[in-house]
């Protein structure tokens, strides 16, 4: 029990990094998801192929590879130091899950029933209005559970930033473990509990999203 009281505040020092990386990379991922998802439905073949390339590259390789690659490549290719590894982590996680989520966006838009777009045409809506007023609101409902699931994946993914020296929860766990090897079981168990506590609201939101997505859409 004493050990827990000792270890918990130590790990909590990493909370800030874990949470900010998660929030920033989630925002980037959602942004990329909608941009790339819509681009893949574009009528312009060049835009479609280009985003297809982005999606396949990021889905086809591992997050950990991308993280290290960007860690070394960003300073070299762009001749800039981002100033911190925080950005490297955010960009890697955001681009990676943005690629996965763009498929969710694309699939949801495609799965809104064809009759919906026809009804909107019959009401003389423009292409943009059909998308904004009819297709999109329904597609977004369908996306919610997958967005929830992938956000949990992103939370798990944030643990990788400890590998590039970011001081997140796992980083402090590693420090504690190396200072006292016999404490390792309790340290890592608490690290896991920490992540699980962070995941709980996301799990709850995902289940809520599942309920919402079940009503209010016409698909097929």
């Amino acid at each position: 029990m004493n050990a827990i009281i000792e270890i918990f505040p130590q790990l909590a020092r990493g909370l800030h990094v874990t949470i900010t990386v998660l929030l920033a990379s989630a925002i980037l991922a959602y942004l990329m998801a909608f941009i790339a998802g819509l681009c893949r439905l574009s009528q312009n073949i060049f835009i479609r192929k280009f985003t297809g390339f982005y999606v396949e590259v990021f889905r086809g390789t591992s997050l950990i590879v991308q993280l290290f690659w960007l860690y070394y490549a960003i300073p070299m290719l762009f001749g800039i130091q981002l100033g911190s590894n925080w950005w490297t982590g955010v960009i890697a996680i955001g681009l990676n899950y943005g690629a996965y989520l763009s498929e969710v966006v694309r699939g949801s838009i495609l799965s809104v029933a064809k009759g919906q777009s026809e009804a909107a045409t019959a009401l003389n809506m423009s292409r943009f209005q059909r998308m904004r007023l009819v297709i999109f609101p329904q597609a977004v409902r369908m996306m919610l559970p997958e967005f929830g699931n992938y956000t949990i994946q992103m939370l798990k993914g944030t643990s990788l930033v400890s590998l590039i020296g970011m001081t997140d929860i796992l980083y402090y766990g590693d420090i504690l473990r190396s200072s006292n090897l016999s404490q390792a079981p309790i340290v890592y168990l608490l690290v896991l509990v920490f992540y699980f506590i962070l995941a709980l609201p996301l799990i709850w939101l995902t289940r809520k999203g599942e309920r919402i997505s079940k009503k209010g859409v016409a698909n097929g």
């Binding site: 798990k156 993914g157 390792a184 079981p185 890592y188 799990i203």
Partner: peptide, 18 residues
């Protein structure tokens, strides 16, 4: 499922023997 596999690896590799 909702905790990082990386930490689970560390747990098995570093903590389990202890």
């Amino acid at each position: 499922r909702s905790t990082p596999p990386l930490v689970q690896l560390f747990f098995l590799f570093y903590a389990w023997p202890m």
